[in-house]
Design a protein around this nucleic acid. Structure first.
Lengths: 205, 205
DNA sequence: GTCTATATTGGGATAGAC
DNA sequence: GTCTATCCCAATATAGAC
């Protein structure tokens, strides 16, 4: 029986809060519900985190930080640009698949409060990572491996758009697919290989 | 001086509510703020719409209906599949450009309450429209104009992903671009032609 | 550190005059 | 149909015992 046999209150709160906030959003979440889920009293939330705002910020930065860390790790993949894109998409898709509720939550919260994005970037040095990958891709372009009219910033946004949007738009896609007896889970699965193919076709010379 | 010299209260409320809901979301919006913006009293909101829920549903379906109507109109464009994609993207981009706050609002609200999507579809017969365009694209595939491995449902989702995501993710993209002194507005503008090129490169034989 | 009880404010909703 | 005044519950936050 290690120290995690019984998590301390602070840790239990953070886990419960992450779950409630991710599902309901900051505005929709209730402190009572978080306390219930953590199995502790509501007053304890304020004892540890002072206010809903502060609890949210801590939880948001921790959760988003964890996910973005895994996300930017993939920038270090070695190999040709095509290998990089395929590997990047594989890992990225896995990450999304395991954190389906995260994208809409994340983008909604940073829309409500863009300062959260700024704070997240300071924590993770995201800009630096983007600069690195941009430089790598630009080199591949100079070497004539990909089309000369491919603009790297757009390529990156395109890759992310193609993999993230199906999760953000899932209630809409699901509802439309239901009409035609199509399976959303299968649809997501097909995209795992399809997206890489789609991107590579569009950039190769 | 026509009848719109002074809008009636109901109309003023709907316009004010659309604006507040779109910016703050259902959970974040306040009835008081809507009343203030409409220039009327809070009690009048309840007189006309009974509750916040009912006001929201009416406003959401009206706003989303208006935008989706313009969106699905583009399905009727005539010409080759490449013309269709280019025209569709042009109109779609204009629509998004004029309704920047709509995408994240829309997807957040249907995530909170998927039934809204179902109601919207019933109002607009969206499924039927999707079926029509799917059939058109499938024909182009049979005719050998586009790659045989292009799956039509994915192609449609890809096109929408590429144009909608930059708006959903705007606070993130803006923040990252700021670090490199890049201009988000210019970025959006570049995408107008880039996306069509990207898509067409990826599907042409 | 954790609880119960309570304060306080915010916000949706209603009563009733005009 | 529009207003002022008010109700009432929900939700954040605090006080204080243990």
């Amino acid at each position: 029986m290690g120290k995690d046999k019984k998590l301390n209150a602070e840790q239990k709160i953070i886990e419960a809060a992450a779950d409630i906030f991710e599902t309901k959003g900051f505005e929709g979440a209730r402190m009572q519900q978080i306390a219930d889920k953590a199995g502790i009293n509501k007053a304890l939330l304020h004892y540890y985190f002072r206010s809903k705002d502060l609890l949210f910020e801590k939880v948001f930065l921790k959760l988003a930080g964890k996910i973005f860390l895994k996300f930017i790790e993939t920038f270090n993949i070695e190999g040709s640009i095509f290998d990089k894109i395929e590997m990047f998409l594989q890992i990225h898709q896995d990450l999304l698949y395991k954190n389906r509720k995260f994208p809409i939550f994340f983008f909604n919260e940073i829309t409500r409060n863009p300062d959260l994005m700024r704070k997240l970037m300071l924590n993770l040095e995201i800009s630096k990572k983007f600069q690195e990958i941009t430089k790598q891709f630009d080199q591949e372009k100079k070497d004539g491996i990909i089309r000369q009219d491919v603009e790297v910033s757009h390529l990156i946004v395109n890759i992310i758009s193609l993999s993230v949007f199906p999760y953000i738009g899932s209630p809409a896609i699901k509802e439309i697919m239901k009409e035609f007896d199509l399976n959303y889970e299968q649809f997501l699965d097909e995209r795992r290989t399809m997206i890489a193919q789609f991107v590579i076709n569009s950039i190769k010379v």
